[in-house]
Simulated assay, not measured.
Amino acid sequence: MKRFYLISIFLISFLGHTQIYNKEIEAKLKIEKNNDLLKITGLVTNKTAINTSLHYKLSVIKSGNKNNSNNSQTGRFVLEANESKSLSVTSINANEKDRIIILLLIYDLDDNLLGKDRHVLNDSKKK
């Protein structure tokens, strides 16, 4: 019986410390494909009634047969209550053989991760 209580206490404390992303600040990636060109837009939405100062990092990591590239964009911004905003737009050349990881991270001023979105294109590991 003591064992059951110890396990229950451990699980409750563990679950209480798990981070839930996109609850108050939502990160969203919009990806548009036009032939061999990808247009990537990082979007953010404040789901609260409070103005918030934030910063973001939008990363695009591309690996292919002949070349690899890593592009990151960062910035600070203020998001008004219940506001949605476009943070950054980037375009890259891509084909079906390129594996592309796109990651948008939204942080508060204390570097706590509040929102994230991630897409993997042409992921050969799933096959």
Results as ranks from 00 to 15, higher is better:
Lys2His: 12
Lys2Arg: 15
Tyr5Arg: 10
Ile7His: 15
Ile7Asp: 13
Ser8Leu: 13
Ser8Met: 15
Ile9Thr: 06
Phe10Asn: 02
Phe10Gly: 04
Phe10Asp: 00
Ile12Gly: 05
Ser13Pro: 05
Phe14Leu: 07
Leu15Asn: 09
Leu15Pro: 01
Leu15Gln: 06
Gly16Tyr: 13
His17Val: 11
His17Asn: 06
Ile20Thr: 13
Tyr21Met: 14
Lys23Pro: 00
Ile25Ser: 02
Glu26Asp: 03
Glu26Val: 07
Ala27Lys: 12
Lys30Leu: 15
Ile31Val: 08
Ile31Gly: 01
Glu32Leu: 14
Asn34Ser: 07
Leu37Asp: 02
Leu37Cys: 14
Leu38Phe: 09
Lys39Pro: 03
Lys39Asn: 03
Ile40Ala: 04
Thr41Trp: 01
Gly42Ala: 02
Thr45Phe: 01
Asn46Ser: 03
Ala49Gln: 08
Ala49Ile: 05
Ile50Asn: 08
Asn51Trp: 04
Thr52Ser: 03
Leu54Gly: 02
Tyr56Ile: 02
Lys57Met: 02
Leu58Pro: 04
Ser59His: 09
Val60Met: 07
Ile61Gly: 02
Ile61Trp: 12
Lys62Asn: 06
Lys62Val: 03
Gly64Ala: 02
Gly64Pro: 06
Asn65Thr: 10
Lys66Asp: 06
Asn67Ala: 07
Asn68Arg: 05
Asn68Cys: 05
Asn68Ile: 15
Asn68Ser: 07
Ser69Asp: 10
Ser69Ile: 10
Asn71Phe: 11
Asn71Pro: 07
Gln73His: 14
Thr74Met: 06
Gly75Asn: 12
Val78Asp: 15
Val78Phe: 11
Glu80Pro: 02
Glu80Asn: 14
Glu80Thr: 08
Ala81Asn: 09
Ala81Thr: 03
Asn82Cys: 04
Ser84Gln: 12
Lys85Pro: 00
Leu87Gln: 04
Leu87Gly: 01
Ser88Asn: 08
Ser88Arg: 11
Thr90Pro: 03
Ser91Cys: 07
Ile92Pro: 08
Asn93Thr: 12
Asn93Asp: 09
Asn95Val: 09
Asp98Glu: 11
Arg99Trp: 08
Ile100Asp: 00
Ile100Ser: 08
Ile102Trp: 01
Leu103Met: 10
Leu104Ala: 13
Leu105Ala: 07
Leu105Glu: 12
Ile106Phe: 01
Tyr107Ile: 05
Asp108Arg: 05
Asp108Trp: 00
Leu109Asn: 14
Leu109Ile: 07
Asn112Ala: 04
Asn112Lys: 13
Leu113Gly: 13
Gly115Val: 01
Gly115Gln: 02
Lys116Cys: 12
Lys116Ser: 11
Asp117Ser: 06
Asp117Glu: 00
Arg118Pro: 04
Arg118Asp: 04
His119Gly: 14
His119Ile: 12
His119Ala: 07
Leu121Val: 04
Asn122Pro: 01
Asn122Leu: 12
Asn122Asp: 05
Ser124Asn: 10
Ser124Phe: 14
Lys126Gln: 06
Lys126Ala: 03
Lys127Ile: 15
Lys127His: 06
Lys127Phe: 05
